[in-house]
């Protein structure tokens, strides 16, 4: 009887610990999704859809870049960084230049 009781107690503890672990991971994931980091690059010269691919490809290859989205009408490239990652302005400007276009100002909309 005591053995069954001890097994039960251990099992409850294991279950409780597992639930706490899952809660911690879930909280961490939520906090990541709630704090995306964006950089906006103003770009001149990208005036047709076929030209957009090269721009997105060059910037997307940079370390730390999670996503690239071009707003062609506004001449803006919206870069989403990976959590904890940084990308230098020099690298971003070079990527735009290598794509064949002209980088203008760089804006950090998430900055306080």
């Amino acid at each position: 009887m005591m053995a069954i009781y001890r097994v039960g107690i251990v099992g409850i503890w294991v279950l409780a610990l597992g639930m706490v672990q899952m809660a911690a991971v879930s909280a961490g994931r939520s906090s990541t999704e709630e704090t995306p980091r964006h950089i906006i690059i103003r770009v001149d010269g990208a005036s047709c859809p076929f030209c957009a691919f090269g721009l997105e490809k060059r910037i997307g290859r940079l370390d730390g870049v999670a996503n690239v989205r071009l707003e062609m009408k506004e001449g803006k490239v919206i870069v989403t960084l990976e959590e904890g990652a940084t990308v230098s302005e020099e690298a971003l400007r070079r990527a735009v230049d290598e794509a064949g276009f002209t980088p203008r100002e760089i804006v950090y909309p998430d900055s306080p």
């Binding site: 859809p49 076929f50 090269g54 060059r58 794509a99 064949g100």
Partner: peptide, 18 residues
């Protein structure tokens, strides 16, 4: 090859590495 005229050359860029 870039988007541009169909029957001859254009001066549109081919991005580096593309």
């Amino acid at each position: 090859v870039e988007a541009g005229p169909i029957t001859f050359n254009s001066a549109l860029p081919v991005p580096q590495g593309v």
